[in-house]
């Protein structure tokens, strides 16, 4: 089981990069199951004893995911063009990021974002998450306050977390300034013809 320290580190340093990682995986390795790769990558992070040596968590996450993809490709013995052509795009995908995910989920904006994620829940879930995460009440206290059973509260926590996790990590799927592996973009400069 992951330590509270590791969970906090992942919340702050890994989770914010997941939307971008998903977009990159989908664009670069069209043959892979993105959700599987994401879970495997977190599994490897869960096995870390300490994280002090990781200076660039974003790069660490991308590299970990890339290795998961490569090992899957190797295991399956099917090395398709789609699977492999994205390998090198790892490095290039990163500096080309216009919209830094850090800016979305880190620092001051995190608060607004978290508030927004909770507000987007259906009525009962929203009330429960506000009481739990803003007021700091326990599930038991929430059940008493709202006059509902503890299992309903627990179930709302499950459903709300599932929803929040989805919108937290998938919202940016569509917008990804990826370079294609090939492409002659700039070299067609003006050439005077005969």
């Amino acid at each position: 089981m992951a330590s509270p320290q590791l969970i906090g580190w992942v919340a702050q340093n890994i989770l914010p990069h997941e939307p971008r990682l998903r977009a990159w995986l989908a664009a670069a390795f069209s043959a892979v199951e993105v959700d599987d790769v994401i879970q495997e990558s977190y599994c490897r992070i869960a096995a870390l004893d300490h994280v002090e040596h990781i200076q660039d968590p974003r790069q660490y996450l991308f590299r970990t995911a890339r290795n998961v993809v490569l090992e899957q490709a190797r295991r399956s013995r099917v090395v398709s063009f789609q699977t492999i052509s994205g390998i090198a795009d790892l490095e290039r995908a990163m500096p080309l990021d216009m919209i830094s995910p850090e800016r979305m989920l880190a620092g001051r904006r995190t608060l607004a974002r978290v508030e927004q994620l909770i507000s987007a829940l259906p009525e009962r879930g929203r009330r429960i998450f506000r009481l739990r995460k803003i007021e700091g009440l326990s599930q038991k206290e929430i059940a008493a306050r709202l006059g509902i059973s503890e299992s309903i509260v627990e179930n709302e926590v499950l459903r709300g977390l599932r929803r929040i996790l989805l919108s937290m990590t998938e919202e940016e799927r569509a917008e990804m300034p990826m370079r294609r592996p090939r492409g002659g973009r700039h070299e067609r400069r003006a050439v005077v013809q005969d």
Binding site: A2, I7, G8, M168
Partner: peptide, 24 residues
């Protein structure tokens, strides 16, 4: 193996919501 990763990921997301405490 994937379950260990999925659990860490869900725990991290749940933890991130603690930031909302500041709103109080």
């Amino acid at each position: 193996d994937r379950k260990r990763g999925a659990l860490l990921r869900a725990q991290a997301a749940f933890r991130l919501l603690d930031r909302a405490r500041a709103l109080r």
